[in-house]
């Protein structure tokens, strides 16, 4: 059983839902990333989504793009991100880490090299935003051979037949994008999301994570009532952005704790 699967299994037994915060690696400075990861876990995160900075993050809104830009000032590329995961694993061997990023840095490293290095760093899942399943069959096969879960997005506009295609390639969990738009756009429509999730569950037994529009504890609570995992990205990154270096760990811990309490209050 993969680390991601065991976390979901354990939470299901406890009738709890997963909290998956997202931060961009290297934001606001590479020296903070590993300690931020530990702080997130300590204050209630079940898994971590770590963004790989990219110069042209087309699917992200301005908040996450700025995070990429801050990290790129310090030249935080994919190799550096893998080093951070290696560092994190020295103290934490249980929390799943999912890399989220774009295809080009992966291809620049070479897909075989990337998958080997990701395995060596003990990465659990990889979400490559601009790799639809049709364009990455080799990559997915490589990931699976190394027991790394390929995570895929499903969107409000994904056609029925396509949902089947995607869930057949995915493992670990599927990530439902709760609104039409980029990350951090507007608030999600919980009724619509509920309907879509019910539909997706008829096609797969994989856990479903929901993200792209979870902006506060109240929304997190609502999403937790229908999904298996709540992904909080832009809101987390905003907190990083507005915090001074002294406040950073405290603020991130407080926000994570607030989300944890909200999710568990259902």
């Amino acid at each position: 059983m993969s680390r991601i699967q065991s976390v979901f299994a354990k939470l299901a037994q406890q009738h709890k839902k997963a909290l998956i915060p997202y931060i961009t690696a290297g934001d606001p400075h590479p020296r903070h990333t590993v300690e931020l990861m530990h702080a997130l876990v300590k204050s209630g995160a079940d898994m971590l989504e770590l963004g790989v900075p990219f110069s042209d993050p087309m699917a992200d809104g301005p908040v996450i793009q700025r995070a990429s830009e801050r990290a790129l000032v310090h030249h935080v590329g994919l190799a550096a991100v893998l080093d951070m995961v290696t560092e994190f694993r020295k103290q934490d061997t249980v929390t799943p880490v999912i890399l989220m990023g774009y295809a080009n840095p992966v291809e620049a490293m070479g897909i075989e090299t990337f998958v080997e290095r990701a395995k060596a760093a003990d990465v659990d899942g990889v979400l490559t935003v601009d790799y639809p399943p049709e364009e990455c069959t080799d990559f997915v096969a490589l990931l699976k051979r190394h027991d790394i879960d390929p995570i895929f997005l499903l969107s409000p506009t994904t056609e029925q037949a396509r949902i089947d295609t995607i869930v057949n390639q995915a493992s670990g969990f599927v990530y439902y994008v709760s609104l039409k738009g980029v990350t951090g756009s507007q608030n999600l429509d919980i009724v619509q999301v509920t309907e879509r999730l019910a539909d997706i569950r008829t096609k797969t037994s994989l856990p479903i994570g929901v993200g792209f529009g979870v902006r506060d504890a109240e929304t997190a609570k609502q999403v937790a009532s229908i999904a298996d995992a709540v992904v909080v990205g832009s809101r987390m990154v905003q907190e990083v952005e507005k915090s001074s270096e002294q406040e950073l760990l405290g603020n991130i811990a407080a926000l994570t704790h607030e989300l944890r309490v909200a999710i568990d209050s259902n």
Partner: peptide
């Protein structure tokens, strides 16, 4: 070439 976009754009392109 190909289609390398996030899932959110797939249906629009289709």
């Amino acid at each position: 070439g190909g289609i390398f976009v996030a899932e959110t754009l797939i249906e629009a392109l289709e």
